[in-house]
Amino acid sequence: MTETALYTRPQSLLDMDMFYCPGCGHGIVHKLIAELIDEFDLRGRTIAVAPVGCSVTAYDYLDVDFSESAHGRAPAVATGIKRARPDCFVFAYQGDGDLASIGMAEIIHAANRGENYTTIFINNTVYGMTGGQMAPTTLPGQKASTCPEGRDPVTTGYPIRICEMLNTLQAPAMIARTMVDSPANVRKTKQLLKKAFQCQLQGKGFSLVEILSPCPVYMRMEPKAAMEHVRKNVSAYFPVKVFRELATE
């Protein structure tokens, strides 16, 4: 009897134990990225930018050339890399504190210049790495260590919808929001990431996929409940949607 492997670890995913908490969305998305790098045969020409956040050591898991970036500056670092090496495939991986708070200026201007690189934006509605503080994406009423009574929009404003904001700009080639709350949506997310990769490979310009993602620890829930929370509550505020998409098949 011969054995056929129906599923193997993607080649671009290193054989390492991930240090992410059980039920964290980062690991799911890393795997999708690795699969796509393999499918497009991009390992030999990929340069990735890691954020400051829980996924700062994404290079421990993804077997491609990697640069760290200062907190929020990934779009500027990716701009420098892509301009320096236009033939390379460049993606930046950013969290919501990184992208939507400290790095807001950099992401808007990279998008507005139509920089031809891909942003993978993990929105888990909290600051994971620093211990669950309020993020610009924290939902109204959601408890975090710096809003212990729940986020009060009167004094802290409302969660920022990045895709909608960037969608006011003319240059971006792709803007989409998705979530990794279920196997079906994980597959959908992969399809959207594939389109974003294609956008860049076809030279269409800036592409960003926002991924609503669970952080069970600081959402203060069991992993399964965090998935449901993403599906029911997070996506109610941040609608899952393709805002624009210019890649051709």
């Binding site: 200062a70 500056r73 500027a76 670092v77 890399i81």
Partner: peptide, 26 residues
């Protein structure tokens, strides 16, 4: 060659960081 007017000095130095990481004189 590459010229970018950045949105700020913060962005400009991080673009330098990216281009230098990619092995270029920046």
């Amino acid at each position: 060659r590459v010229f970018v007017q950045a949105e700020s000095e913060v962005a400009a130095i991080n673009m330098v960081y990216g281009a230098a990481a990619a092995g270029k004189r920046a």
